[in-house]
Nucleic acid binder design. Structure first.
Length: 266
DNA sequence: AATAGCGGCAACCGCCCTACT
DNA sequence: TAGTAGGGCGGTTGCCGCTAT
């Protein structure tokens, strides 16, 4: 006996959301908040499944979303977190206020995976591929024979990250961070430190692409782990009181322009 | 100018987890 | 304690726009 579907799919709309649907959903959530996602489409007058509404809101319409490409700094953090957490995208996303798990997952699949492969690392295991192991051994031998090139030695810059985690998560993450993983994290620092990877990747994959993040790295750096955790907690509460907590400053949010343009029609 | 190939990303699917009764 | 409903999550799909030919 299979599980019942989350909703009656017959007669429901699927595919990309229209401006009008976005407007209805945002309007409803602002005025009413959400107690039960299943009821949202009915009450908001949408021919969508409740899950679809939730997804649209969480991944696209939420006003606290940070739009724009991920910075190099964020990418590095994602790689380090992935080494500890694996494909637990929501856990990883929790460290990046304003970023969604879907966004990070997509970014991982489309860009970071390639980047790691270029570095000779298997994105799934974070272990060097066979070829690169050979290559690495060569380098290791050379650097050792050339004597103590300290520039290649690991500096544990990320060693304090775990300290800022909640105890339960800390336990979970420490369990995941095997010796192998820690070694790999050390390798990352070595690799990132010694290579101008960004330039390399872009010159190989898209020479004309001028990679320029639309916001400063400071944004993410200034957001400490503690802040991200408190925001994570806040995000559990804010939806029901959405009307009081939103400051509508979706400057870069294209659909919003359309949303307001749409609203002017009334 | 047309079109095939490719990459990025929004959205869907279905299983898992948790809270509630 | 067991059963159930509903939300959360990760994997996957398919569309759209860009680029190369």
């Amino acid at each position: 006996m299979g599980r019942q579907p989350c909703c009656e799919k017959i007669g429901l709309k699927r595919g990309p959301w229209t401006i009008e649907e976005d407007h209805k959903l945002v309007n409803f959530l602002i005025n009413n908040g959400v107690n039960c996602w299943r009821m949202v489409p009915k009450l908001a007058g949408l021919l969508r499944c409740g899950k679809s509404c939730r997804l649209r809101w969480m991944n696209y319409l939420r006003p606290d979303l940070k739009r724009g490409p991920l910075t190099e700094d964020e990418e590095e953090q994602i790689i380090q977190l992935h080494a500890r957490l694996g494909n637990r995208w929501s856990k990883i996303a929790a460290h990046f206020p304003g970023r969604t798990d879907n966004e990070i997952k997509n970014h991982w699949n489309t860009r970071i995976k390639k980047r790691l492969k270029l570095l000779g690392l298997d994105p799934a295991t974070h272990k060097p591929t066979e070829q690169s192991v050979k290559h690495d051994t060569e380098i290791e031998r050379t650097s050792r024979s050339n004597d103590e090139d300290t520039s290649l030695q690991f500096k544990p810059s990320d060693s304090t990250a775990l300290d800022t985690l909640p105890i339960t998560e800390k336990k979970q993450e420490v369990e995941f961070a095997s010796d192998d993983t820690i070694d790999l994290m050390q390798d990352y620092d070595k690799l990132w430190g010694s290579l101008n990877v960004e330039a390399m990747v872009h010159s190989e994959t898209n020479p004309s692409n001028d990679y320029s993040p639309s916001f400063s790295i400071e944004d993410s750096v200034n957001t400490s782990m503690n802040e991200s955790i408190s925001m994570q907690e806040d995000s559990q509460k804010w939806v029901p009181s959405v009307d009081s907590s939103i400051s509508w400053t979706w400057d870069d949010f294209n659909p919003l322009e359309d949303f307001f343009a749409f609203q002017n029609l009334y």
